[in-house]
């Protein structure tokens, strides 16, 4: 990964020098262990070397950077839309593709640097491993070992592979396609998508499914972190905030919260790339991955559509086929 980091910096420098971009969007070291954070570089000078050298690439670059893009391209006649260079994993790129297809991001203003993804560390899994003992330091070795320092001063060595995010283990698209630059390296082997879990959940009795849904929703505090972290939740005005006709209440009434999440997930049909940004963002640990995954699987099963790397195909919810199934229709 160190060589990837070096390469990303080189490319960032190169495209700044060639004046191809106004901004670069990557990751820098975070201020808490096990976290890298989004990092913007704005070219005030020709090559902002000091800033470029802060760019990192490691196993903590989980944030889906696509989420920042649509805001830059909101229509404003007074401003020229910027050109942005961005380092992307498979999931980030598929989100960007979805945004391009929905005309939220102009492809020609984006310089894509694809990074083969080895999977990212799941912070909660590592934390769970130490049962509440605070982690004060983390670093990784090229051999795939996570060195963790805990509050008591002890050092621990964990196998990186055992603490990856579920989304990464199951990821079907760890390798990017169709980027302007591609960082050399091997991505992890594609996973199977983890749809067996959906099947297992479906086989449970309805009451059990409902209880699970209810339990997860009851943790929600309506902070909207899931929505804000989701790259394809780009509506300028969310239905939850429409006041002309108030769809749902503002409180944590279970019914309102359920409808918020249900409709938010439904609106992701054909857009969701299962990056799990919503799950990671949630401060309360609400886990609705079972439901986002379901909508992805249904879209694939019903409309043979998988949000991939091609900008050519039409998003499934804005088109139809005459032979789409009618089997859910009630007959008298």
């Amino acid at each position: 990964m160190e060589s990837m980091e070096k390469k990303i910096r080189e490319i960032a420098r190169e495209i700044f020098i060639n004046q191809k971009i106004d901004f670069f969007l990557g990751y820098e070291e975070g201020s808490v262990p096990l976290k890298s954070r989004p990092f913007f570089i704005q070219a005030k000078e020709k090559t902002p070397d000091g800033l470029i050298n802060r760019l990192v690439w490691n196993s903590f670059c989980s944030n889906n950077l696509a989420v920042f893009l649509p805001k830059f391209f909101e229509h404003d006649p007074r401003k020229k839309p910027p050109r942005i260079g961005i380092s992307v994993k498979g999931c980030d790129l598929r989100s960007i593709v979805a945004l391009i297809k929905e005309k939220q991001v102009p492809r020609e203003n984006i310089v894509l640097i694809g990074v083969p993804c080895l999977g990212m560390i799941d912070k909660t899994k590592v934390e769970a491993n130490f049962q509440g003992l605070e982690i004060i330091g983390s670093e990784e070795t090229p051999e795939g070992v996570l060195n963790i320092t805990t509050k008591d001063g002890k050092k621990h060595h964990l196998k990186r592979e055992e603490f990856l995010q579920e989304a990464c283990i199951e990821c079907r698209f760890p390798m990017t396609e169709g980027t302007d630059y591609l960082i050399e390296g091997k991505a992890r082997d594609p996973g199977d998508g983890g749809y067996a879990r959906i099947k297992a959940f479906e086989d449970k009795p309805p009451e059990e499914r409902w209880e699970y849904f209810k339990r997860e929703i009851s943790k929600c505090i309506r902070c909207n972190a899931c929505r804000q972290a989701c790259p394809t939740c780009w509506c300028k005005e969310c239905f939850a905030e429409q006041t002309d006709l108030r769809w749902i209440g503002a409180s944590i009434d279970l019914s309102d919260t359920m409808i918020f999440h249900l409709i938010r997930i439904f609106h992701q049909a054909g857009r969701c790339v299962e990056c799990d940004a919503c799950y990671r963002a949630c401060p309360m640990g609400v886990d609705l991955r079972m439901f986002t995954k379901k909508i992805v699987q249904d879209v694939d099963e019903l409309f043979s559509y998988v949000p991939g790397f091609s900008t050519e195909d039409t998003p499934p919810m804005s088109t139809f086929r005459e032979e789409d199934s009618d089997n859910f229709i009630s007959e008298p």
Binding site: E202, I265, D298, F328
Partner: peptide, 14 residues
């Protein structure tokens, strides 16, 4: 398309 998905999702949550 919307209806097909909606029906499935509602059934799925119970």
């Amino acid at each position: 398309r919307k209806f097909a998905l909606m029906k499935r999702l509602l059934t799925y949550i119970g």
